[in-house]
Nucleic acid binder design. Structure first.
Lengths: 145, 145
DNA sequence: TTACCTGCAAAGGGTTTGCACTTTG
DNA sequence: CAAAGTGCAAACCCTTTGCAGGTAA
């Protein structure tokens, strides 16, 4: 493995190595937009590495998460979904009908968090703001029924 | 069962009956403050009904949820936690150290939801705003270490 | 070379389901 | 009485772990 010294650095801080499998998981998360779960990542990974195991996917995700390269979100319910860390903090809306996930930013959220953590003296390290409901398309479909 | 016609009504709308077991689950959620998971509800329920099964707890929770009497929340991660529906919408902070859950209100959140759903034409039916971090007590403990 | 990592298969924890019987309305 | 609900045990799904053999630095 001779890639991206920045990555190697991020992992090395945790005493972790940059392996072919971890790089693959990271590549998949970067290439495929959306919020993949471990199973979907596994399916995709198998296309490029026949022998990779689901256990490795889970272990890779754990390491990448610890290194701050990936974040996990349970979109209101269900099992874990993963995506690479992005510059701007954003949140998720999940359509209960078609399953589509819409990302959005909301400056009001950090404000609320800041106000609250000051008032209650909380040290907030993770913020989850997930909405669920119906997207514009699915609202139309229901009206036509 | 001869109790609370209001409850019977709420369940009847879904074609569901008010059974001894469902009433018991609801009573437990009302009596015990906090955010119980299915296992904890089961343990408590067994004290009052030796023969109740965990499957019934899950099925009861599903029915009560559908009837709008109970809500489920995955506090950022982990498995489901349940509580009875309350008048004021509130959110949750979970301490990563001691596990304590702090409830709070935040008028900024409905505002953000309303603004966003108008702008993006989303029909929002569920709002989850979960914070995780360290509570005041656990921050102190860490400083002393 | 020495940690660290992988694949495999088995185990784990939470949740759901099939079935025969019981209960509600 | 018909429809809905229950207990039990088995099944499921997602995730984690033990272990023997590989691999990164």
């Amino acid at each position: 493995m001779e890639t991206d010294p920045e990555l190697i650095q991020a992992l090395h801080k945790q005493g972790s190595h940059l392996t072919r499998q971890r790089l693959l998981v990271l590549d998949i998360l970067k290439e495929i937009p959306g919020h993949l779960d471990a199973g979907a990542i596994f399916q995709e990974a198998k296309k490029r590495d026949e022998r990779i195991s689901l256990a490795t996917i889970y272990r890779s995700l754990a390491v990448l998460k610890a290194a701050g390269l990936v974040e996990e979100n349970r979109l209101g319910e269900e099992h874990g979904h993963f995506e690479t860390i992005q510059q701007a903090e954003h949140y998720h809306f999940t359509c209960l009908s078609c399953g589509r996930v819409i990302e959005f930013e909301a400056t009001g959220i950090p404000e609320v968090v800041q106000e609250l953590s000051g008032r209650e003296n909380l040290m907030v390290t993770e913020t989850y703001f997930n909405l669920r409901g119906y997207c514009p398309e699915c609202q139309k479909i229901e009206q036509n029924t």
